[in-house]
């Protein structure tokens, strides 16, 4: 399973151009484009939540999306995953236009996601959660007359996933009994169980203790280098540890994008996170949790 593979080392940042402005994409260097967003606009009545955002994300990227609350990050994720249809623009997944495709269809094409607020099957056991996930792409999910426990391959996959991230001894517990950190890990495992090529992580470290943040960061760094990860995260420390390229949204617009270190020094970004006065005071420590 690609998602469960241990990542030996975080992918070294490629020699990409510095953030020259909102429209500057990372250099592809012959790499396949995993996700291509062309002028995506999403409106809720009068509110424009995402305003003509264009991004190109190469396969195998570690791509971060940041911005203040209400910037449109999660709305953009919902458009990417197929839960929302954009008012205009197109989304291409590995060159295929998926703009009109439903969320389950996109999962079949290789897109997995987690949610900002943990979304699990809380009254089901960890084993049942993982079994449901590994059966997501299998035709046997419509099987009516054979107990799900007898699908040994699915059971083995579920156990392998649980073991790979230390949840093996929790297989018999209901998800509702897990700690918040374990819930976050389980959510990532569910997303990995559908063998994604593109993984969308919506604030995977939200609500975690410092120790749990280290754990989730380690978990994400161990993932298959071939997996494209797009992550929304407010915690710049976690973000820095996982992604090498960041796009900044504000009021639905793409403010800038570039290598993480450069974006952190970007004046507009510091204004957004620290306020105009602090930014001009030369605040250099856009490092820890910023929201």
């Amino acid at each position: 399973m690609s998602g469960a593979g241990v990542r030996p080392d975080a992918a070294a940042p490629t020699s990409r151009p510095s953030a020259g402005g909102p429209a500057s994409p990372p250099t592809l260097e012959g790499r396949e484009v995993a996700l291509e967003l062309d002028a995506i606009t999403c409106r809720f009545e009068e509110l424009t939540a995402v305003d003509s955002v264009t991004l190109t994300i190469p396969a195998g990227s570690r791509f971060g999306i940041i911005g203040p609350n209400g910037a449109g990050k999660t709305t953009l994720f919902n458009v990417l995953s197929g839960e929302l249809r954009p008012a205009s623009g197109t989304v291409k997944l590995f060159g295929r236009d998926v703009t009109r495709m439903s969320a389950p269809e996109r999962v079949r094409l290789g897109m997995g996601r987690t949610f900002q607020v943990v979304r699990l099957f809380s009254d089901l056991t960890v084993r049942e959660n993982l079994t449901l996930a590994v059966m997501g792409l299998s035709r046997s999910k419509l099987q009516l007359l054979r107990p799900w426990r007898t699908y040994r391959v699915h059971q083995a996959l579920a156990e392998e996933l649980a073991s790979s991230f230390g949840l093996r001894d929790r297989l018999g517990r209901t998800a509702g009994e897990l700690s918040h950190g374990e819930l976050r890990e389980l959510e990532v495992l569910l997303a990995l169980a559908v063998e994604p090529k593109v993984l969308l992580l919506d604030e995977p470290a939200a609500g975690l203790s410092p120790a749990e943040r280290v754990d989730i960061q380690a978990l994400l760094r161990r993932l298959d280098p071939g997996l494209t990860i797009i992550m929304i995260e407010h915690d710049m420390q976690v973000l820095r540890g996982v992604v090498d390229w960041v796009a900044v949204l504000d009021h639905g617009e793409l403010v800038t994008q570039g290598p993480t270190a450069e974006v952190q020094r970007h004046e507009r970004v510091r204004e957004l996170y620290l306020g105009r006065a602090a930014a001009h005071d030369g605040a250099e420590h856009l490092g820890s949790t910023t929201s």
Partner: peptide
């Protein structure tokens, strides 16, 4: 038998969290 089948498990998933189930590829 049906409620212990994969379909039965997915029905329980549907009751528990439909949005998550969709995000796992279930129609």
């Amino acid at each position: 038998l049906m409620v212990h089948s994969p379909f039965g498990l997915s029905l329980r998933g549907l009751k528990s969290n439909e949005r998550r189930l969709r995000a796992l590829g279930y129609r």
